[in-house]
Amino acid sequence: MAMTDKILFTELIKENKGIIFKVCNSYCSSKEDRDDLAQEIIYNLWKSFAAYKANFKFSTWMYRIALNVAISFYRKEKNKPHRTIYSENLLIFEEDSTPNTEEEKNLRLLLQFIGQLKEIDKSIMLLYLGDKSYRDIAEITGITESNVATKISRIKEKLKTNFLTNQNNFYGTK
């Protein structure tokens, strides 16, 4: 592949690194798995990059690949050996060990609740929160727009209930 492609690819990956992290964080609970998955996603993005058409939004194309890789990675057998080829971390992000503000606590809860969703529901929610339209979500997932709408409304209800239950448990134990 041409040198310009390599430079362009590296730039696009850097610009959209947040997508990779959010997908990895939603599908993997451990740092090692997250790094393995990030490697696999970037590998597959690079492998498909030659076929990428610029008339398609890069983030949409990237979501498709990242989510497909993440779902298949998540579904693999547990206890598989890590395929990390590089001893250093690929994704470097220091999370707050203890959330201080109410906002930080809620964000942690939101990430936890998203992590508990089923594979496809997780994808739909990530796309929805990533400001993708119903049409985009339908194209990325391969399900109809009306099914996307139904799914989103159910997931939103579920998240609301989870927050409410958590709040009630918190005040109930106080």
């Binding site: 498709r64 989510l67 890789v69 994808s123």
Partner: peptide, 10 residues
């Protein structure tokens, strides 16, 4: 080809 839609690939 992972750039296909999720349902097809999965």
């Amino acid at each position: 080809d992972y750039s296909n839609d999720i349902v097809t690939i999965q």
